[in-house]
């Protein structure tokens, strides 16, 4: 038995890594095909502000992160519907506003809050059994919703009007997707931090898009890359004594690099 399996905290980290790998990689497919990478980054930074707000208001930081992330995601989506400004402009405004608010809130917190930095860069080795139960529940719920709504979400991403004419309630489905995405991001920042949850969503799916040409292959490859990156990254970080979250992201980036070299000439990211 490898020696890292003797440590309960490391086994918990491996379980959390695999779960978030599956969750992020699957949602990441839709983030990529809907061209929402910038959006997911903005939500990640907003959820960090949510952590700070949680600490200020005396509620659980993860509840603060989840609530604020969902709020910002829905606000961006609502304003985006008006089309008086382009979506990336709206995201840019919220991105910086949320961060600025976060910095002000941190300043208002009393004392030096070392736990805040755990949410900025993640602390996957510090996850509790309760964290893992939360992630497992969210992963299971998301996978079930994905199986139910996969065709609908794919159709909306492919052509929203086609979906509308075929009877899909596009606004409801969009909001459902955004809420799940925001919750995943909020939970993910506990593990890899606000700075690195974006790459965890995007890189496995982008890797899959390099070499896959169908939605089926995209979901399969993205999930495998997500799981592999989490496991390999954690194990490498154990032996190399490096920070866990960043090592996971670097492993997935290395796999992305390999897939980029292996991609068919016609593939576009």
């Amino acid at each position: 038995m490898p020696d890292f399996l003797q440590y309960d905290f490391f086994v918990r980290a491996l379980i959390a890594g695999v779960l978030i790998g599956i969750l992020a990689a699957n949602l990441g497919v839709f983030v990529i095909v809907r061209k929402m990478s910038f959006f997911s980054d903005a939500i990640a930074h907003a959820s960090f502000t949510g952590v700070a707000l949680g600490l200020l208001l005396g509620i659980h930081p993860l509840a603060g992160a989840a609530g604020f992330a969902v709020l910002i995601a829905l606000l961006i989506s609502k304003l985006g519907e008006r089309r008086s400004l382009s979506l990336d402009t709206i995201i840019g405004v919220f991105f910086s506003t949320a961060l600025a608010l976060g910095v002000i809130v941190i300043g208002a917190l009393k004392g030096y809050r070392v736990d805040l930095f755990g949410y900025l860069f993640g602390d996957i080795l510090g996850v509790s059994a309760l964290d893992n139960i939360l992630i497992a529940v969210l992963t299971a719920a998301t996978v079930i919703l994905l199986l139910i709504f996969f065709r609908v979400w794919t159709k909306i991403a492919f052509h929203a009007d086609l979906a509308r004419v075929e009877g899909v309630n596009v606004s409801f489905q969009d909001r459902l997707f955004l809420v799940i995405l925001a919750l995943t991001i909020a939970l993910g920042i506990r593990l890899v931090g606000a700075v690195l949850i974006g790459p965890l969503l995007i890189i496995p799916a982008a890797t899959a898009k390099n070499i896959g040409w169908s939605m089926r292959s995209l979901v399969a490859v993205s999930t495998l890359v997500g799981i592999f990156s989490s496991l390999a990254g954690l194990i490498i970080s154990y032996y190399a004594n490096t920070a866990s979250g960043p090592t996971v992201v670097l492993v997935s980036a290395a796999v992305f690099g390999l897939s980029f070299l292996a991609r068919p000439k016609t593939a576009k990211i």
Binding site: V33, R151, T154, K155, A157, F158, H159, K209, G212, W213, S214, M215, R216, S217, L218, A267, K268, I269
Partner: peptide, 15 residues
């Protein structure tokens, strides 16, 4: 339509 969308003809119709 986005030509880089990862969907095969069969998948599109399967939707």
């Amino acid at each position: 339509f986005d030509p880089s969308f990862p969907l095969t003809v069969e998948e599109l119709l399967l939707l």
